[in-house]
Simulated assay, not measured.
Amino acid sequence: MATLAGASLARAASEEDAPEMKVNAATAAEIAKLPRVKQTLVEPPFMPEHEQAASGGPRIIEVTLPIIEKKMQIDDEGTEIWALTFGGSVPGPMIVAHEGDYVEVTLQNLATNMMEHNIDFHSATGALGGGAITKVLPGEQVVMRWKATKPGVFVYHCAPGDVMIPYHVLHGMSGAVMVLPRDGLKDAQGKPFKYDRAYFIGEQDYYIPRDETGAYKKYEVAGEDMADSLDVMRTLTPTHEVFNGKVGALTGEGAMKAKVGETVLFVHAQATRDTRPHLIGGHGDLVWEAGSFNDKPDTNLETWLIRGGSAGAMTYTFQQPGVYAYVNHNLIEAVLLGATAHVVVEGDWNDDLMVQVQKPGPIQTT
């Protein structure tokens, strides 16, 4: 009797599963009919070309993301790290989609690399964000597809397991995804909103070991620093806190550009530590601090919080020309550790907004 009961239950389960299997098969067939678009990724702070409001229905966005292990200099003093990168940059490139799109990622672990890698998309739905199904050894590639169900900005990062998770992330393996609502962004009143330029700032904390003299150590191959680096990481005290891979990456020739009257979208991501972006001389006109575009943005913020392991977005319409400093307003990290960027803004000065009433001179007494 028990055997018959078991068989009946098995048949019932099979019959119950059948409709779901048909639904899945139909869904797969529908996905196969969607138009495919290859997205050309670019090095941050720039973003790939994209529509702000989708002009058509859902698409499959094809992305190729090579993993490159390479030696990088992270300051002007010659400090080096064997960076583990998505696409060869720190942070990895921004991926842009619209809600309802599918993102199909070809993850390539180059044969010249030393380590196993994978990718965890905070924007994806499913255990480990795809980390379990994207593990690749050197010389291998894997293809993963995920559906963009949540509008907002999200971190992605490498997560091979155990101590290799912080080791890989803190050697540069993180980036971000922006999922726009199909009809574009909305302001605080729910009205359609557009930006003129967009920049991606990836904040990275490094933990570089020192030798017995206090000098930063250098290593011949990727992974050679693992034991030393883990010891420094356990202090929770970074030696460098930088934007886009190195001290000064977004200053001088690398500074972001804008013009008076332009509205600029800034996406800021930090995979491990809380950070407090601040635009000196400007404001967060609209701020999606936690990254969700489904939520009403905050307005007119002076400083905003990006939680470790997340991304946030801010827009500002520049009113005055000049060189604006965009900083982590933990000023120790901004000034001493490197978390400073510049935005060079062109245009005409408005004395009504700011003017020097009196030039510096001797203190006058009455």
Rank of each mutant, 00 (worst) to 15 (best):
K70N: 08
K70M: 11
K70L: 12
K70F: 11
K70W: 05
K71P: 08
K71V: 09
K71M: 15
K71N: 07
M72Y: 05
Q73H: 14
Q73T: 15
I74K: 06
D75S: 07
D75F: 15
D75T: 00
D75I: 05
D76I: 07
G78C: 01
G78Q: 04
T79W: 13
E80R: 10
I81F: 07
W82I: 11
L84Y: 15
T85F: 08
F86A: 01
F86I: 03
F86W: 01
F86K: 00
G87T: 08
G87K: 03
G88W: 04
G88M: 06
P91I: 02
G92H: 00
I95M: 03
I95V: 10
H98F: 05
E99G: 02
G100D: 02
G100T: 03
D101Q: 05
Y102Q: 02
Y102D: 03
V103L: 01
V103G: 02
E104N: 13
E104C: 13
E104G: 08
V105Y: 06
V105T: 11
T106K: 14
Q108A: 15
N109Y: 05
L110C: 12
L110Q: 08
L110G: 10
A111I: 12
T112H: 12
T112M: 12
N113K: 11
N113G: 02
N113S: 06
M115A: 09
M115G: 03
M115N: 13
E116L: 08
E116R: 13
E116G: 07
E116F: 12
E116A: 07
H117N: 09
N118Q: 14
N118Y: 11
N118H: 09
N118P: 15
I119W: 03
I119D: 01
I119K: 02
D120H: 09
D120N: 09
D120K: 13
D120G: 05
H122M: 13
H122L: 07
S123A: 13
S123Y: 00
T125Q: 09
T125R: 15
G126M: 06
G126Q: 04
A127V: 09
A127Y: 03
A127Q: 08
A127C: 06
L128G: 03
L128Q: 14
L128S: 14
G129S: 11
G130M: 00
G130S: 00
G130Q: 01
G130T: 04
G131L: 04
G131N: 01
A132W: 02
I133G: 07
I133F: 06
T134D: 05
K135C: 03
K135S: 04
K135L: 04
V136I: 10
V136H: 11
V136T: 07
L137K: 11
P138L: 09
P138V: 05
P138A: 10
